[in-house]
Design a protein around this nucleic acid. Sequence first.
DNA 1: CGACTATATGTCATATGCGACATCCAGCCA
DNA 2: TGGCTGGATGTCGCATATGACATATAGTCG
Lengths: 107, 107
Amino acid sequence: MIMKKTKSERRVKALGWKDGTVAEFLGLTPEESALIEIKLALSRKLRERRQQRMTQAQLAKKLQSSQSRIAKAETGDGSVSIELLVRAMLATGATPKEIGRTIAENG
Amino acid sequence: MIMKKTKSERRVKALGWKDGTVAEFLGLTPEESALIEIKLALSRKLRERRQQRMTQAQLAKKLQSSQSRIAKAETGDGSVSIELLVRAMLATGATPKEIGRTIAENG
DNA sequence: CGACTATATGTCATATGCGACATCCAGCCA
DNA sequence: TGGCTGGATGTCGCATATGACATATAGTCG
């Protein structure tokens, strides 16, 4: 996440915010929820695509990143930006169409 | 953009990279091109949606951002992340579905 | 058992995206 | 003309996402 380090961000971080169907269940705004859902959808799809093709270390190298960041990306760590998720998806060979669908259908 | 401050990023920045159908025409990798196209698709859609509903200053307030960042987001300034573009889209009332479609169809 | 591989997790210095602010430009209208 | 509004652009200090690294965990194979 970016910005102000909002209340709800801290709420979410406290919970780990790694879960599957994330939470409105503490007072997240719809926008905050939606953003998290989008990230999680990308995380899940990234893992799926990456596992079919290469190891985390190999993807990291393609991205000029590191294995640990890929692991964090795939586990839905809050420190990972949408930007990195999208770059990683592209590095697995995903097209904008696939990325868009991932967000539209599972976001 | 993030990461290493690649060669091609500098190439793109030198060109302003604001253009409509962005460029493979200098040696951008397909991934770099795709990322830029995604950002530009979001920029264009953001402007379209925002103009129908409010001023840049009003959207900025909703986002706890500033008018200048919104202007940069809409003009495709390279300093704006996908994260902010997505947050801004959400703040205009866009759903993940609409955001996904924007990327899938125009990315 | 140990060796090796894949992944997860935590920390850190640094790069970079951020909001804020100051201008500047263009259009509009009195 | 001048004032007002919406938007664009440049800069700056600060917050944070980053890659790198160390280490832990778990699985596999000998």
